[in-house]
């Protein structure tokens, strides 16, 4: 058994802010995830993230970044180890409980946006609240507020296919924030964007973190990580380097 290793910390310009955070939000302990053929995507990894922190997970393709994100989001289960988020043992949740956990706790932003093309921007943003059964009036107010804050309110009735990549990613962020999740998980949020759109999204994440949003960011982009994250963890072959 390989001993668990704490993810290496890399202090950056925003390190001071993370030190303000005292409560542990995410506790990943000795987690492994193996797929068919016993290939380990994660290998006895341990990681702790404090509330209000913005952690960047860096590493080459296949290093286990997205797998870790999936485990924290309750989209997948570890083969070994425990994942606790906000006091909830995510690795023990069944499908229904995991869905409820995601509604309440997680906002997900994907590289390719994952917007539903047959729904308008507003309807995409409303989706998490509607699935959670939140009152329609409150949900609409929240959606308007988010679209306004993110500068895409003029596209409220448009369909995602007509928007630029940067605008689509803003819609995806708005959807992720709809239920006011304590934790925002972003998987390569600028990976599919051109430089200008990438910069837009980078600024958006900086602003969100400045407002106290806990964020875990998976990226290849060192510039994005250094601009946004308070801490970075580099993964190589499923382990913290």
């Amino acid at each position: 058994m390989t001993p668990a290793r704490e993810g290496a910390l890399t202090a950056d310009a925003r390190g001071a802010r993370s030190s303000l955070a005292s409560l542990t939000m995410i506790d990943v302990v000795d987690v492994s995830r193996r797929y068919e053929g016993d290939q380990a995507a994660l290998d006895h990894l341990s990681l702790h993230v404090a509330e209000g922190e913005c952690l960047a997970l860096l590493g080459p393709s296949g290093s286990g970044k997205s797998t870790l994100l999936n485990l924290i989001a309750g989209l997948d289960r570890p083969t070994e180890g425990t994942v606790t988020v906000g006091g909830t043992r995510v690795d023990r949740l069944g499908e229904a409980a995991a869905a409820r956990y995601r509604r309440a706790t997680i906002g997900l932003v994907f590289q390719f946006f994952n917007l539903l093309d047959d729904l308008t921007v507003t309807d995409n943003v409303l989706l998490p609240a509607q699935i959670a059964g939140r009152p329609a009036g409150d949900a609409r107010r929240r959606a308007r507020e988010l679209l306004g804050t993110l500068g895409i309110d003029r596209h409220a009735d448009a369909y995602p296919g007509r928007l630029s990549g940067g605008e689509r990613q803003r819609v995806a962020v708005a959807r992720a924030l709809m239920n006011r999740p304590p934790l925002l998980l972003a998987d390569e949020p600028t990976g599919a964007l051109d430089t200008a759109s990438g910069a837009e999204v980078r600024k958006l994440l900086i602003d969100l973190h400045a407002d106290g949003q806990t964020i875990i960011l998976v990226t290849h982009d060192e510039v994005l990580a250094s601009a946004v994250a308070t801490r970075t963890v580099r993964l190589v072959d499923g382990q913290a380097a």
Binding site: E95, A96, R100, A104, N114, L127, I131, N179
Partner: peptide
């Protein structure tokens, strides 16, 4: 199936 995945990622339960 991808859209189903998106729905689930934003909190849709198996029953839903």
């Amino acid at each position: 199936v991808h859209d189903i995945g998106v729905h689930k990622s934003v909190g849709m339960t198996p029953k839903q």
